[in-house]
């Protein structure tokens, strides 16, 4: 009797543990975009639950100066779903500290998905491509997500204790919201004046980019992207949607690479963790 008890108890513990855990996604050796009628609505959508997962190992950016001196985020878990037109990627990684404010000396959490501009047997350098071998990038940032989520467009949203007595664009002679007032505000926001607003209210937390090697990153309005990110219990979950890479179809392959920036480690720009190329495949549409 005592012997039976000894066997039953561990079995019960195992059963309870398994029942308490969500089923872990199947691990794959390539990123497989699972076919679905529609794309998930968010990074927490239940549609992601049964999608196979690719574990992308990350290494410090090591090609050009400035490099990342010490490795930080070791890996990112990647899933993909396609509706035949667009592909949604979900990236999840561990990050104990939420960094969603860029200010002097402070950096933000961010991630990116990169694919070659066209299908080719030998993809270009995974470090943002090379001359003649361009890459397209979708880039998400935690501070942009905070602006999209409703962060207020004033200095107090960044420095809660800040007191500013007067800005020139608040002069009484300037009617609020008038073209004159906006013009005055632009005079003291040079990046705004040339259409390169990188902070403050935004419609989207992601950006579409292209590059032909380090230092060549440029906006890519030809590829429409969208996305959203949420803070999880132990890190970030970010969904990024872009059109299926041109020519990618079932039984064909292209490449995909990932990057993660950890704000608490003062990572930004070239100081990042990046992966090598992984194969990207598309699942055949289920009948």
């Amino acid at each position: 009797m005592r012997r039976r008890k000894l066997i039953v108890l561990p079995a019960l513990v195992v059963l309870l543990f398994v029942a308490g855990c969500k089923k872990a996604p199947v691990q794959t050796t390539e990123v497989i975009a699972v076919a679905a009628a529609q794309l998930p609505s968010s990074p927490t959508d239940a549609a992601w639950d049964n999608v196979p997962e690719y574990l992308a190992k990350l290494i410090p950016q090591d090609l050009v100066e400035p490099r990342l001196a010490q490795a930080s985020t070791p890996e990112v878990r990647v899933q993909a779903i396609t509706n035949g037109t667009d592909v949604a990627f979900r990236l999840r990684w561990l990050d104990s500290e939420q960094n969603d404010t860029a200010k002097p000396g402070s950096f933000v959490d961010a991630c990116a998905v990169q694919v070659p501009t066209k299908l080719m047997p030998n993809p270009p350098a995974p470090q943002m491509g090379e001359a003649g071998g361009g890459v397209q990038i979708v880039y998400w940032r935690a501070d942009w997500q905070a602006w999209v989520n409703g962060r207020e467009d004033n200095i107090k949203s960044i420095y809660p204790n800040a007191e500013v007595t007067h800005y020139p664009f608040q002069a009484q002679s300037l009617e609020k919201g008038s073209p004159e007032q906006k013009e005055m505000a632009k005079r003291y926001a040079p990046a705004d004046a040339v259409g390169n607003r990188r902070q403050s209210p935004r419609q989207s937390p992601v950006e579409s980019l292209l590059a032909e090697g380090p230092g060549t990153l440029a906006s890519n309005p030809a590829v429409a992207v969208k996305g959203s990110g949420v803070r999880t219990q132990d890190g970030w979950a970010v969904m990024m949607v872009r059109p299926l890479p041109e020519g990618l179809a079932p039984k064909k392959r292209t490449s995909v690479a990932f990057a993660v920036w950890q704000g608490s480690n003062k990572e930004g720009g070239a100081r990042k963790m990046r992966s090598g190329w992984a194969p990207l495949a598309v699942e055949e549409k289920k009948p």
């Binding site: 860029a102 002097p104 000396g105 950096f107 960044i158 040079p190 990046a191 390169n196 990188r198 902070q199």
Partner: peptide, 26 residues
Amino acid sequence: QGRCRGYQECVRGCPYKKVFFNPMTG
């Protein structure tokens, strides 16, 4: 101002610290 992406490398590099990061324009 059309090309800067706010990496703050210039802030780090200038020994006189005469480049400043603008947290509102990025």
